[in-house]
């Protein structure tokens, strides 16, 4: 029964975070100099008092703040994130159109990061202090220190410009009009460079975390018990060490998701991946504030949903969840 109450609490938390994100957004809007009316007027090219006034009335900007907040909250709750200044389309529609590409890229990067990171971490933890361990540590420190966007550009320079192995831009070959499997293969090839670039930083984190967790768990008493039972080293490593060491990684995946999305904005831009990240860049350059804010809200909600998922996974992986954390 306690696992259910744990999940219930996390569910409530997710809802609260969403509400907080929307509240924060409402105050961010008021941070920007000038209100929607001035911006609209600026774009329309003229600004006489009467027009501004009618605009303000139309957008409800002449009403008291709590009323505006309530309207904003109800609007967002119904999926109305406002209109994009530049595209003259509902913000949500613009974002939803690009969202699948971003999710695809991020999911791929996450898989590569976890898979690679866990493997490298296990490799390093096998002989702490050895040359192999040291090289994993040095590499991971290097990937921590490299700006992701620059790493992407360098990868592009090497693998696309110099070696010509992989396509540098976009999600698929322009004008090729592949269908079916050929299209999937085309997209996959395009995804390699941005995906791996995005993954490397997180792979470094995972490698370090796995290494630490493996070494820590290997020193625990229950591993000694396992050896005292005379079971094989493989079983000791798999059932006892790895199973315990992987639990913190589940929670970590949730926490990393937020950073992953930030990295995705940069990497998408470098590789012209038509996702939410490039959209954010366009919003910045065209000063399309409602769109930028909409992207923040949508990505924040998605990341908190992903965290909910990892919390549930954690509650299944660790029976001690009922002890409460």
């Amino acid at each position: 029964m306690n696992r259910l109450s744990y999940i219930g609490a996390r569910l409530v938390k997710t809802v609260l975070i969403t509400v907080a994100v929307v509240l924060l957004s409402f105050f961010l809007i008021r941070l920007a100099p000038g209100d929607t009316a001035t911006v609209m007027a600026g774009q329309a090219g003229f600004a006489d008092e009467a027009f501004m006034k009618s605009l303000r009335a139309e957008y409800g900007l002449d009403q008291p703040v709590p009323v505006q907040l309530w309207k904003y909250l109800t609007a967002v709750a119904q999926g109305d994130l406002g209109m994009s200044f530049v595209r003259r389309q509902p913000v949500l529609d613009v974002i939803l159109e690009r969202l699948p590409n971003t999710m695809l890229l991020n999911a791929f990067a996450l898989l590569v990061a976890i898979g690679g990171g866990v493997l490298f971490g296990m490799f390093a933890a096998r002989r702490p202090g050895s040359a192999g361990d040291a090289s994993v540590t040095v590499l991971s420190m290097l990937f921590y220190a490299v700006p992701q966007f620059w790493l992407g550009m360098m990868a592009m320079l090497v693998f696309s410009v110099w070696l010509g192995w992989l396509p540098p831009f976009g999600i698929e070959t322009m004008g090729a009009d592949y269908t079916g499997l050929a299209r999937i293969a085309d997209i996959a090839v395009h995804m390699i460079l941005p995906g791996v670039t995005l993954a490397l930083y997180f792979m470094a984190s995972y490698a370090r975390l796995t290494r630490t967790a493996m070494i820590e768990v290997a020193d625990q008493d229950f591993v000694k018990t396992a050896r005292a039972k005379g079971i094989s080293e493989g079983q000791v490593a798999h059932r006892h060490i790895l199973r315990n060491a992987l639990i913190p990684l589940v929670t970590f995946a949730g926490l990393q998701a937020a950073i992953l999305v930030g990295g995705s904005v940069l990497v998408e831009n470098v590789f012209s991946w038509p996702g939410v990240g490039t959209l954010a860049y366009e919003a910045v350059t065209t000063r399309d504030n409602p769109l930028l804010l909409g992207i923040f809200i949508v990505t924040a909600v998605l990341v908190s949903l992903f965290n909910l998922a990892t919390d549930i996974a954690y509650s299944i992986a660790d029976p001690r969840v009922e002890l409460g954390r």
């Binding site: 930030g262 904005v265 924040a300």
Partner: peptide, 8 residues
């Protein structure tokens, strides 16, 4: 920790 702070 949970919101994408770079986007914010």
């Amino acid at each position: 920790q949970i919101i994408p702070s770079f986007v914010l």
